[in-house]
Every structure is written in C-alpha cells, then in structure tokens.
C-alpha cells in the first residue's frame, strides 16, 4: 500500500516531535548524571561525620547535604499531615454528600486553588507570618511550620481531586451492595468505598508528596534558608534540597560547591523518580487486585 504525501509528512513530523522531546529529556538527565555521578559519595551527604552519628543526630553535619535532605523529609511529612485529613474529608464530601449546587461552587473554588501559582501561595504563607508576628509579639518568623502549611495549601486541591475521582469512578453495583444490605452511608464509605478506591487515593497522595519535595517557590518565601542545620523545632528555619539547588545555581563559590549542587540535583531527581514509580506501581498493582465489572451506567 502506498501512502499519500500528507500522510508521510505527518508521520515524519510526529516522529521528529517524539524524538526531539525524548532527546531533550535524555539530554537533561544525561547532563546531570554525567556531571554529577562522581559527587554521589557518602561525603556528599554526611560531610566528614560518620553516617550513623549523623542519622542518630549525635553530631551536626557541616558541608554535607544531610540537613537539606532531613529538611525536605520533615517538610513532606508535616505538609502531608496537615493536608491529608482536610483533603480526604473534602474529597469524600464532594463525591458522596454534596448536593449538586454546593458541589458546583466548591469544585469551582478548588479549581481556582489548583491554578494559583506556587509563588502566590508562598506570598500568602508569608503574609500569614506577618499577621502571626504581630499577634504573638514578634516571636513567629518564617519557619518549617509555615512552609509546611503553605505547601499543604498547594497540594490540597490535588488530594481533594484524586479522592473525589477515585470514589466517583467506583461502579454502581459496588456502591449499592452495602446499602442494600442495610449499611449506613458512613459504613458504606469506610468499609466499602474507601478501601476499594485506595489505589487511586494512595497514588494521588504519593504524587502530592512529590510536589512537596520539588516545590521551591513556596518554601523560598516561607522559611527555607541556605544554612540552618537539622531543624530543631517546627518554628525554626530549615534547609531543603530544591532550595539548595536553586541557591547554589547562582551563589556557588567554586567547583567543589558546584559539584555538591549537581549531587543535590541528582538526589532530588532520584527521590522524585522513586515517588513517581511508587505512585504508578501502586495504581497498577491495586487495580489488578480489585477488578470490578464495568459501570453499567
């Protein structure tokens, strides 16, 4: 079969686009790996401190990435702890309880929230700090808690949306079984609907964790600093990997610091890749386990 000229051009164009996108991605990753793989040593993370001492917080790490990694870790933990209950509850309300008018208003507001640029969310976090600073007589400064709270606002619409979609895409037959047997709405949600939609919800949560790990704009306005050590409390400043990378890209003093920045970029990339793979893995694994008949409607 001979193909027409437009068809051949179309095929050529598509191949060219696909290949240029893939090569752009591979150039970026390849560049980082080639420049940075030598930096990936225990010293990069722990400096001259023994890894076990650093992990048990026996000695402060100077000149290593350990404080930045710990900062990112606490940041993810804290912001997910803040966003999770609120996001899950709102998602459940939208999917299972909300009357259509309320649902329209709420999902409109969540759509707007998901579109707000992260720097504006950071600015919001900063203005909260100003208010608290006035209110508590100057004892509140930009800190881990404010950053985590702002990041929680940033990922809130993601969590709400994935929870809502996961619940709404359950088949009607499953949705009606427990109520038909006399279960209350709450029991149906907690014993049937939530467990069945767990894969979608968890994979959404992991993606939200990735956003917490990678976001720089929010934390640069709300408490991330270049050197802080391991955060002592939620009211202290902190280091974070993405902020470190951003900061070093313009402020590095020489080749050794630049190497550390490449190392930090590689570590952040690996972290986000792992989260991404996990998220997809869980979605497919659990979906395979919970195959239902297609929705009859």
């Amino acid at each position: 079969m001979t193909r027409s000229v437009p068809d051949r051009l179309l095929s050529f164009f598509s191949w060219a686009c696909a290949l240029s996108l893939i090569s752009a991605l591979f150039i970026i990753i390849g560049f980082l790996v080639l420049k940075g793989y030598k930096a990936l040593t225990p010293e990069l993370i722990f400096g001259d401190v023994r890894p076990l001492d650093a992990l048990l917080l026996k000695r402060q790490v100077f000149g290593g990435l350990f404080p930045a990694m710990a900062g990112t870790f606490f940041l993810i933990l804290l912001s997910m702890a803040l966003a999770l209950p609120l996001g899950l509850a709102s998602g459940i309300y939208l999917a299972e309880f909300a009357p259509s008018g309320t649902k329209r208003v709420l999902s409109f507001l969540f759509d707007i929230l998901s579109g707000i640029p992260s720097i504006v969310v950071g600015l919001f976090g900063f203005s909260i700090t100003i208010f608290l600073h006035h209110y508590f007589g100057g004892r509140i400064f930009p800190c881990l808690l404010i950053s985590a709270l702002s990041l929680a606002f940033l990922v809130l619409p993601y969590i709400i949306r994935t929870t809502q979609i996961a619940l709404e895409s359950l088949p009607l037959s499953l949705r009606l079984t427990a109520p038909a047997l006399g279960a209350t709405k709450a029991r149906n949600i907690f014993y049937v609907l939530l467990p069945s939609s767990l894969s979608g919800i968890i994979s959404g949560l992991i993606l939200a964790m990735g956003r917490c790990a990678e976001d720089t704009a929010v934390i640069m306005l709300t408490g991330a600093v270049a050197t802080a050590g391991i955060p002592k409390s939620v009211f202290s400043g902190f280091e974070a990997l993405p902020f470190y990378i951003y900061y070093m890209a313009s402020e590095y003093s020489g080749p050794p610091e630049l190497m550390k920045a490449y190392g930090a970029a590689l570590i952040l990339l690996i972290l986000c890749t792992v989260l991404f793979v996990f998220s997809h893995g869980i979605k497919h694994l659990l979906r395979a386990k919970t195959q239902y008949l297609p929705n009859p409607l």
Binding site: S90, V120, F124, F153, K185
Partner: peptide, 30 residues
C-alpha cells in the same frame, strides 16, 4: 452517625475552599 460525618466533611470542605478566598483576601488586605 451519617449526619455527624456529613457535617464534619462539610466543615472540612468549607475550610479548604476558604483557603482560595483567604489567599486573595490577605493579598488585598496587605
């Protein structure tokens, strides 16, 4: 029990939606 859950979940949604309004509100205020 259902009504309690509905109220709690509704409260959470209003709180989340409030963030959208609060972001704009704070910026206008400042």
């Amino acid at each position: 029990q259902d009504r309690v859950f509905r109220t709690v979940f509704f409260g959470a949604s209003v709180l989340s939606a409030g963030v959208t309004v609060a972001v704009l509100g704070f910026m206008i205020l400042l």
